Amino acid sequence: MRTAYVPSRRSIRVLIADDSAFMRKVIREVLSRDPAIEVVGTASNGVEAVNKVLELDPDVVVLDIQMPKMNGLEALREIMRLKPKPVIIFSAFTDRDADLSVQALRLGAVDIIPKPGGPISLDISEVADQLLLKVKAAARSSLHALRMHSSLMLQRYKYLPLSVRGPAEDTPNVAIAIAASTGGPSAVASVISALPKDLPAAVLIVQHMPPFFTRRFAEHLNKTSELTVKEAENGEKLRIGTAYVAPGDYHMIVVRGADGTPQIKLHKGPKINNVRPSADPLFQSVAK
């Protein structure tokens, strides 16, 4: 039986896997700015990445998807089979590639960061902040704990009475609010798939993801759940037995509509704790 992986060293040891020598250099420079992070190795293809995970035993792996010999998804599968580690996918995505993000999460990746479009220098500050924050978050995570978190969430979630109510039979008087960040998608998927189809509540989900990933994530949840799961739309009324995923880069709150029924409002207010969507506005709007 595998024991849970918990980093025990003072520095966070990171392996970078990317087929671009330039990107390996940029990522190394970004991570090396933080004295708490040590880049212990790099790999230029998936086979080398798997071998270096076994050899170097890093705390976190930053992994590209598009690589020769063995692509990132295949490498991720092997890493999780042979020596499970927190893996952050850092790769170029388009709308058409968003399904790859769902596959990566299904295989065990704890987070995904899209490479910026255009010249890397234009977005290096934003990417640097994301990389540093998410590498640190990934290093603090225990893969065993992440897998167990879904069962704990099922034991601990509570129906929250909505301060905004409506008379319609399919309008919920209670809601379940769920928020997750690094490592959260797997736990959220486990929770949503375990909820019954006759759930007498609406479910509101905040998962920190890039904008075009949240729709794919909602579609994935919809396929594995007895509930109806969709990406939330501004102004849509809450319905029982439906789960709503906040779109990437939008805060989601619950407000009273013109007819008095609870509905969703999306807005691009300031980031909270460096994230948008944030759990705080959602929880405050549901519980107040």
Rank of each mutant, 00 (worst) to 15 (best):
T242Y: 01
R239H: 11
E236Y: 02
E126N: 12
D123A: 14
V164Q: 08
V188C: 06
N234V: 03
A175Q: 07
A175L: 03
H208A: 07
L154Y: 01
V191H: 08
V191G: 05
L133T: 10
Q207M: 03
V245A: 12
A168C: 11
G241D: 03
L199K: 10
E126D: 13
P185Y: 03
P167N: 13
P210E: 12
T242W: 00
L143N: 11
S125M: 14
A243F: 02
E233I: 08
M148A: 14
L227D: 00
M148Q: 13
P196N: 13
A218S: 14
G184L: 06
K197T: 11
V164W: 08
I253G: 05
I240E: 02
K223T: 09
K197H: 11
R147C: 02
T182E: 05
E126T: 14
T224L: 13
S151I: 07
L154F: 09
T224H: 14
A179M: 06
A201Y: 10
N234K: 01
M148W: 04
T224D: 03
L160T: 10
A179H: 04
P172F: 00
Y244H: 01
A218P: 11
L160V: 02
L152H: 08
S125L: 15
V255H: 07
R239D: 01
R216M: 12
I178A: 10
K230L: 12
R215E: 15
P167I: 04
G184F: 08
M209A: 03
V254D: 01
H251M: 02
A202V: 08
R156D: 09
V245F: 07
G184D: 12
T224P: 00
I176M: 08
A138I: 01
Y250L: 06
V191A: 12
F217L: 14
P247R: 09
T228Q: 09
R215F: 14
A180G: 13
P211N: 06
A187M: 07
V245L: 14
A179Y: 05
T214N: 08
R140V: 03
